[in-house]
Design a protein around this nucleic acid. Structure first.
Lengths: 208, 208
DNA sequence: AGCAAAGTTGACCGCCCGGTCCGGTTATTG
DNA sequence: CAATAACCGGACCGGGCGGTCAACTTTGCT
């Protein structure tokens, strides 16, 4: 159904350049955010600027390719953890993996890089569904308080990295501290009623 | 010591324009972030672009003026709450005020708008010291866990707004939900040891 | 080896940005 | 009501951006 590039195998050098471009772009976006210029990305990859646009029609498309890659990787981790016995540690491990991934290359913007392409939307929806399942399991096992939804966790997921980004020369794993604090806020022991209902983030599965 | 514009009373229309400019800039920055263009700000204020640069030498200076204003307002709230009996609710009220202010005009960037001017740095240092006192009092009263520092709260302070910013059409007080969760994470009941020492944010007072 | 298709390149285009500048306008003072 | 200094505005400048294109190089098939 997804008629993706049916018959074209892609030339050897072209494939090399494409990979170099993706890596360079990820680095550049991580260091300088969305303002990273296409020219710099091209230079970093050791190719001409024109080559960028041959592989990715637009700068947003390049960004989308990276975003999809990361989200898929994270989703795989989540899927894997869905089979774990202890849902609490599974959820915690997932959040750790997410924060760790984000720490290496800050892609916080990817979340807001909203409806760049339907592919991004689909991938995000899939990831969100996985997280929702993880959270549901943890809630069932009473490992987290009953008033926490999947949307809550999705939203809070990026907070540790965000928070740490304001520390000038932060130690690389400072985010663990804030993940721990926030996670403690999710535990039943915290137990104070929440003043506002959770948002709905459209977690409808277009699943598997 | 602060030799601010000693003898010039400022003309009537000029003062009006300056105020309009500050208001327009705050709105524009809130809506579009740092990328808001000077031309748009000028248009919104109903003045020419040249007028902007007459009042503020650079775009960063304009931003700094707004930032200082907000930080001072927040500091005043904090100072006031320092005399409250219940340090726990005082801290909570402070965080509520901070989030509320940020919700109206998202100035999260102001934090990273680092060393634009020494005036900004001084104001921020003062605000941070106030927060540190608030936290210290709450800690003494055992209203929050003993391993939480002022820096922790400063960093976590903006998280609720950040988190909510990813919800497309968020209800205007959704931030309360996430402030509550994070605040619960600060309570002694949460009680899980933190995996990383707190950062130092340079809270040295150049005080009053 | 030879050749067509695929890929690469950097000069180039139009656009928008922050910041400058000077001719014209307005508020203030006596 | 002058007269003057303060102030205003928008055309203008240099620079960087995303994106295009036609001339050139490389790849892979025969």
């Amino acid at each position: 159904m997804t008629g993706v590039t049916p018959p074209r195998p892609l030339r050897a050098d072209a494939a090399r350049n494409r990979d170099a471009l993706l890596a360079a772009a990820a680095d550049e976006f991580a260091e300088r955010g969305l303002e990273a210029s296409v020219a710099d990305i091209a230079r970093r990859a050791g190719v001409g600027k024109g080559t960028v646009f041959r592989h990715f029609a637009t700068k947003d498309d390049l960004l989308a390719a990276i975003v999809i890659d990361r989200m898929d990787a994270l989703d795989a981790v989540g899927q894997d953890l869905l089979t774990a016995d202890d849902a609490a540690t599974a959820l915690h491990e997932f959040l750790t993996a997410a924060a760790h991934q984000r720490q290496q290359r800050d892609l916080s913007f990817l979340q807001s890089a909203g409806d760049v392409s339907p592919e991004v939307t689909r991938t995000r929806t899939r990831l969100y569904a996985t997280i929702d399942h993880l959270v549901a399991r943890a809630r069932t096992q009473k490992a987290i308080r009953p008033d926490i939804t999947g949307a809550d966790v999705i939203l809070l997921m990026c907070a540790p990295n965000y928070v740490v980004s304001y520390v000038p020369e932060a130690p690389p794993d400072l985010w663990q501290r804030y993940l721990a604090i926030i996670f403690d806020g999710l535990r039943p022991a915290a137990a104070h009623p929440l003043p506002h209902p959770p948002p709905s983030l459209d977690l409808s599965d277009t699943a598997t």
